Simulated scan of single mutants.
Amino acid sequence: MEIKKAICTAAILMAAVCLQAQNKCAGINLSVWKGISTQSLDSTQTSYVNLGFLSTINRLNGIGINVLGGVTRKEMNGMQISGLANIVGGSMQGLQLSGISNISGNNLAGLSASGLVNITGNGAKGVIISGLTSIGGDNTTGIMMSGFMNVTGETASGLQLSGLANITREDLSGMMASGLLNVTGKNMNGIQIAGIANITANSLNGMQIGLCNYATQVHGVQLGLINYYQKTIKGFQLGLVNMNPETKVQMLIYGGNTTLGNIGVRFKNKLFYTILGLGTYNLNLNDKISASASYRAGLSLPVTPKLSISGDLGYEHIETFKNKNEVISKRLYALQTRINVEYQITEKLGVFATGGYGWTRYYNKSHNFDKKTIVEVGLILF
């Protein structure tokens, strides 16, 4: 009895599969390997259901599921799922899922997700997700997410997220975020966020956030440790070092009642400047050495071609070394404000005098260790 049921079931399935309709085998393709399938491969054939190990079909309007891979020579409209790879020679509309790679020769509209690589030959609209790399040929609109890198051939709009780098050959409108690097070949309209560097070859219209930021023209904000623009800026830079081609890099040698001897580097723009300094700190207790590292940011205004007045706010980290005792902590910090008057003797030599006030505080306590007036004099080189 069971044998008869099995024979009847097999006969019904064979009849359904081999039924001649508008498409051979009623648009159902069962494939073991290339050339070993229920549908012949010709230019008029359309498959609505494709099941197999490794399939090659002409066109898919429906669903295709393959253990190894599925190849569609023309368009795919629907769903394609493979253990290794999906390849579409024309355009893809719908869903692609694979363990290793998805490839669309022309346009993609929908969702494409793979374990390693997604490649779109022309445009893409939708969501592209890969474990390693996503590559868009020309125009990409939507979301690209990859564990390693996203690359778009020309323009892109939307969101790009990657573990290492995002690279767009021309313009991007939207947001780029990566663990290491973002690069836009021409214009960036939106936000770049990177763990190391953001680069916009032409115009930035928006914001860059990273350790290092570069743009030829800035219409917005650069926020990072080192910010650089090549030509013009309409906005501002906020960082430890803010530079452009006209930035003067000068050495400062100075000392005073709070700092016995210091050396610093000043990055001076037309109005604003920042100073990074190293030196000693005077605790006024004994002759043992304490060291400090400081950062200052301020505004400079010219009075005459050689005389200028500036003011800045500063932070100073202090290592007390052998001065540490029950009163003095191993580390202290100081908040300082200064007014400076400087005179340029020659093109590469100047002098300055400083007056200000500082508060030296504990890191682990909510009160001051000391507070005093600051008096300093020094030289400006280069």
Rank of each mutant, 00 (worst) to 15 (best):
G83C: 00
G83F: 01
G83V: 01
G83M: 00
L84D: 09
A85E: 07
N86D: 04
V88R: 03
V88F: 01
G89H: 09
S91F: 04
S91K: 11
S91W: 02
S91C: 02
M92N: 03
Q93G: 08
Q93F: 11
Q93C: 09
Q93S: 11
G94Q: 01
L95H: 02
Q96V: 00
Q96G: 00
L97R: 09
L97N: 01
L97E: 02
L97V: 07
S98C: 00
S98F: 06
S98P: 02
S98T: 02
G99E: 02
I100P: 03
I103H: 12
I103E: 07
G105H: 08
G105N: 12
N106Q: 15
N106T: 15
N107G: 03
N107I: 06
N107S: 08
L108D: 13
L108Q: 11
G110N: 08
G110D: 02
L111M: 11
S112V: 04
A113E: 05
A113H: 10
S114G: 04
S114W: 03
S114A: 10
L116P: 03
N118P: 00
N118G: 08
N118S: 05
I119W: 13
I119G: 05
I119T: 13
I119S: 11
G121I: 09
G121L: 08
N122E: 14
N122Y: 14
G123Q: 13
A124M: 15
A124I: 13
G126R: 08
G126A: 10
I129H: 05
I129F: 10
S130M: 07
G131Q: 03
G131Y: 03
L132Q: 11
T133D: 09
I135D: 04
I135L: 11
I135R: 06
G136K: 09
G136H: 11
G136S: 14
G137H: 06
D138G: 13
N139H: 14
T140H: 12
T140L: 14
G142T: 02
I143S: 04
I143G: 01
M144V: 07
S146Y: 11
M149T: 11
M149Q: 12
N150M: 04
